[in-house]
Simulated scan of single mutants.
Amino acid sequence: MSQKVISFGEIMLRLSTPGYQRFNQASEFVATYGGGEANVAVSLANYGIESEFVTRLPKNDIGRTCAMELRKYGVGIDQIIYGGDRLGIYFLETGAVSRGSKVVYDRANSAISQVEIGMIDWDQVFDGATWFHWTGITPAISQGAAAVCLEAIKKANEKGITVSCDLNYRKNLWKYGKTAGEVMPELVAGTDIILGNEEDAEKVLGVKPEGIDVTGGHVEGAAYESVSKQIMKQFPRCKKVITTLRGSINANHNSWAGVLWDGKSLYESPTYQITHIVDRVGGGDSFMGGLIYGLLTWPENDQKALNFAVAASCLKHTIFGDFNQVSVDEVEKLMDGDASGRVAR
């Protein structure tokens, strides 16, 4: 059976300071594109999965260039709608050692923030689709974006399409008068596969992990079993809860792993020490892209799917930009234990 994954959300113009420069040092910015759901779509296209990204872009040169960038990576853009005045922007200052990275958003009144119910023909979008992916970023943008996201989830549920979500809590985005705790539960209730981390679980769903210190550089995977059980009890549709485990030693050195709970067993991935991070933005999205690929490719092997997701995301930390530009072969090579980084020729 062929697989087709639909993802829906905002893609932005990303303006990064060169190297490790601070904003006040930069005399120029490096322009790329990125956004949670688009990043997942690119990963899946790289892995050979049919991937379609749905959004709303301004009908101008910047919007068209953004769509062309997605098409370059093999992502379907036929269901993108056009309208509104502008593409959202985010500025990135990459941190180093004890200085963390900084993001400044300039996305108010973006094209997608003004989307409304009925603008997107979800029956047409979901024709032939087997999977739908959304993140907690989209309903944080605006009331309209939240409503359209719920519209899509309900339509996917009607059609028997698997729905996945990355909870992705962004405190700086919830500005339109409602909190994540008020909006997200209704959307999560229609979701089959839930990904998050310790902050997401607490801020979005009110589920608080105990005895975990993420700033100390070590995170114990087994501590998340109780969190996963609480989520499944709260949202009975959910079939799997996956937690990313990031231990932040400093801005350049993180430990990285994940756990998956299927309602019966807790699967734990190997832990990678990422000692020279190039770009961690999009790390969680690369995990989600790898996870969806793994669950579609090895539906009876959750351990392998989890291991693929963690290895794929580990590699993303070595790549500049939001998109994880790696192949299945490269991920499987790391899964098999080859982390030597030797020249391939």
Results as ranks from 00 to 15, higher is better:
Ile277Ser: 07
Gln230His: 10
Arg280Gly: 13
Asn157Ser: 03
His133Ala: 00
Glu202Phe: 07
Met232Ile: 10
Gln325Gly: 05
Gly128Val: 02
Arg14Phe: 13
Thr130Tyr: 02
Lys233Glu: 15
Val148Glu: 06
Val259Gly: 01
His317Ile: 04
Arg86His: 07
Ser2Met: 13
Gln234Phe: 11
Ile77Arg: 02
Leu260Ile: 10
Trp261Val: 11
Lys208Arg: 15
Thr271Trp: 05
Pro270Cys: 08
Lys304Ile: 05
Ile277Val: 15
Glu37Gln: 11
Ala152Thr: 01
Ile242Ser: 00
Met288Gly: 03
Val97His: 11
Leu205Arg: 01
Ala344Trp: 14
Thr318Gln: 15
Val326Leu: 03
Gly128Cys: 10
Lys171Trp: 08
Ser51Trp: 09
His218Gly: 06
Phe323Asp: 01
Gly190Arg: 02
Ser228Asp: 04
Asp213His: 13
Asp85Asn: 14
Glu202Lys: 14
Thr191Trp: 03
Ile117Phe: 07
Ser43Asn: 12
Met1Thr: 05
Ser110Ile: 08
Gly35Trp: 10
Phe23His: 07
Asp338Leu: 11
Glu220Ser: 11
Ala257Ile: 12
Asn168Met: 02
Lys155Ser: 06
Pro185Val: 07
Ala222Asp: 14
Phe29Ile: 09
Phe23Asp: 07
Val183Pro: 03
Glu151Phe: 01
Asn168Gln: 01
Asp322Ser: 12
Thr130Gly: 13
Thr318Tyr: 08
Gln114Cys: 11
Asp285Arg: 11
Lys208Asn: 10
Ala146Cys: 06
Tyr169Ala: 03
Tyr176Val: 09
Ile274Phe: 04
Ala257Ser: 15
Lys72Phe: 14
Ala146Gly: 08
Gln234His: 09
Gly9Gln: 01
Val331Gln: 00
Asp192Asn: 12
Thr297Gly: 06
Lys171Val: 10
Val125Leu: 10
Leu245Ser: 03
Asp85Trp: 06
Val115Thr: 09
Ser7Ile: 09
Met68Thr: 11
Ala147Val: 06
Glu186Ser: 13
Lys155Thr: 04
Thr162Lys: 15
Asn252Lys: 05
Ala96Lys: 13
Lys154Leu: 14
Ala201Lys: 04
Arg170Trp: 08
Thr215Phe: 09
Gly263Ile: 03
Asp329Ala: 14
Pro270Ile: 08
Tyr20Glu: 06
Gly294Ser: 02
Gly128Leu: 02
Val54Gly: 00
Ile81Phe: 09
His253Cys: 09
Asn168Trp: 12
Ile161Thr: 04
Gly74Pro: 10
Ile117Leu: 09
Ala180Trp: 00
Tyr20Leu: 13
Arg237Gln: 14
Thr271His: 05
Gly35Tyr: 01
Glu199Met: 12
Val207Asn: 06
Val103Thr: 03
Glu28Asn: 13
Gln303Thr: 05
Ser113Cys: 12
Ile6Asp: 08
Ala147Pro: 05
